[in-house]
């Protein structure tokens, strides 16, 4: 009896829905943009988390905002679960609406990007990380491990206890690779040891702080958080315990001006702006990974906090420059490589 009623309830719902759909279908153009706007350059972003996370996703948000400002482009973003099964539709929605450039801001979006890219040859699909390529599909990959390696060398000469602690959000390439690079750089001085830990969260500032304090209790005097805003808890702990820290992904010196020695900087906004310009000009060539490393000094570098400029030993800077030359010359292979070239 109950089931019959239920079916009735739902049948009514669906009858209504289909009725309304029938009325709506003849005029789907009503919701799409008028033809006059066809010339507008449109950029879409699939963000695997809140865009105001003061970390990974905010960087992507800043990228489309920069493109909007510099090129007068129409930009849009969607915050989507970091669950690869759901992103294919979002890629298609943007492509369907004539977006010329779509950024999928996670390596795990690459499978979906590859499938959708085949159907929309006039749209360029970019993934932040990944290895899949196609005529209109390319991953943007920063060589984070190499930059972090150089920062690790500075750390190696700034530590007194010889112990550093890396605090990652989750073990994804954008975190694990630079942490491995830092570790290798830090351990270039014999006897130094860098431990890598994970807090399994990007938002839990308390966990970031406690992870740093756990390290401090074990004698660590340098912490390297790479966990979006959760990492800022580690800076707070470092300030309170008067030890040192390194920033990651952007220049974070201002967050703890007398604690953060230097930060790795990966300028996604500039990189995406440059790509956007190529796409608009019609000169963009896909088919290969867009790798950005130390050779691009404006986009991937170590930003040293002015407060520490004079406090870093000359020997450290000398080793830093030597290692940089070797990496650029291809003589030094840094651990934590993302994908084969």
């Amino acid at each position: 009896m109950k089931n019959k009623r239920l079916i009735l309830v739902v049948a009514t719902l669906f009858a209504l829905a289909s009725l309304l759909t029938a009325q709506c279908t003849p005029k789907p153009e009503a919701t799409t943009a008028p033809p006059a706007e066809e010339k507008v350059f449109k950029v879409g972003l699939l963000s695997p988390g809140p865009v105001h996370d003061q970390g990974w996703n905010e960087v992507a948000y800043n990228s489309i905002k920069l493109i909007e400002k510099e090129m007068g482009a129409q930009v849009s973003y969607v915050e989507i679960e970091e669950t690869p099964s759901v992103v294919e539709k979002a890629f298609r929605d943007y492509a369907e609406q004539g977006y010329q450039m779509i950024i999928g801001h996670s390596f795990s979006f690459q499978d979906a990007a590859e499938i959708v890219a085949k159907d929309y040859p006039n749209t360029v699909f970019l993934t932040s990380g990944g290895e899949k390529v196609g005529p209109n599909l390319a991953p943007v990959v920063f060589k984070e491990n190499e930059v972090a390696y150089l920062m690790g060398i500075i750390g190696a000469y700034m530590t007194k206890s010889g112990k550093a602690l890396g605090i990652g959000g989750e073990e994804i390439p954008a975190v694990a690779n630079p942490q491995l690079g830092f570790k290798a750089g830090f351990e270039t001085v014999p006897g130094n040891e860098c431990t890598l830990t994970y807090i399994n969260s990007w938002e839990d500032i308390g966990a970031g702080k406690e992870a740093a304090m756990a390290g401090i209790a074990a004698g660590v005097d340098i912490v390297v958080p790479n966990a979006n805003i959760a990492g800022q808890g580690a800076f707070q702990a470092a300030q309170e315990a008067k030890i040192l820290a390194f920033g990651t992904n952007m220049d974070q010196s201002s967050l703890a001006p007398e604690t953060i020695i230097a930060s790795t900087v990966f300028d996604y906004p500039q990189a995406y702006l440059a790509i956007a310009k190529e796409i608009q000009a019609g000169t963009f060539k896909g088919g290969k990974m867009i790798g950005i490393g130390l050779e691009n000094e404006q986009a991937a570098y170590v930003a040293i906090n002015p407060f520490f400029k004079d406090k870093i030993p000359a020997e450290a800077m000398q080793k830093f420059e030597e290692a940089k030359k070797k990496i650029l010359a291809g003589e030094l292979e840094v651990p934590g490589k993302m994908v084969p070239d």
Partner: peptide
């Protein structure tokens, strides 16, 4: 307690 005692910031989903 989280943003004004344990840490000093707020972010979406802070309670984790």
């Amino acid at each position: 307690y989280l943003p004004i005692a344990h840490a000093n910031q707020f972010v979406e989903g802070l309670t984790a």
